[in-house]
């Protein structure tokens, strides 16, 4: 497969996932709606970063930098949510 075809294939996958994500919003699943469409977003982003941003062909240093940016967001959100998601209503 030539790399042009591969890039077009990645684009088709990203667009197909966009359709799935939009369609899923109309299926009532409660809080799982957001989990599904954000998970699809992560898959789309992984495709874009791997192929359009060429991480698949990058060296170790660039891959480390790419992961570090994400890691800090995961730490920030993850540690904060241990607080926000475990709060109990306090009578004022």
């Amino acid at each position: 497969m030539t790399s042009t075809l591969r890039l077009i294939g990645v684009w088709l996958a990203v667009i197909a996932l966009l359709g799935v994500s939009t369609g899923s919003a109309y299926i009532p699943m409660g809080r799982f709606n957001s989990i599904v469409c954000v998970t699809i977003g992560f898959i789309q982003a992984l495709l874009v970063w791997t192929f359009f941003m060429r991480l698949r062909w990058s060296g170790l240093l660039v891959r480390l930098i790419a992961v570090t940016g994400l890691l800090w967001i995961v730490l920030l959100l993850g540690l904060s949510l241990t607080d926000y998601l475990t709060r109990h209503p306090v009578a004022s």
């Binding site: 966009l18 994500s21 939009t22 899923s24 919003a25 109309y26 709606n33 957001s34 469409c37 954000v38 699809i40 977003g41 789309q44 982003a45 874009v48």
Partner: peptide, 13 residues
């Protein structure tokens, strides 16, 4: 935009 789209447009339809 991959992430803005679901969290702004798809929260509840």
């Amino acid at each position: 935009w991959i992430f803005l789209y679901p969290i702004l447009y798809l929260v509840h339809r």
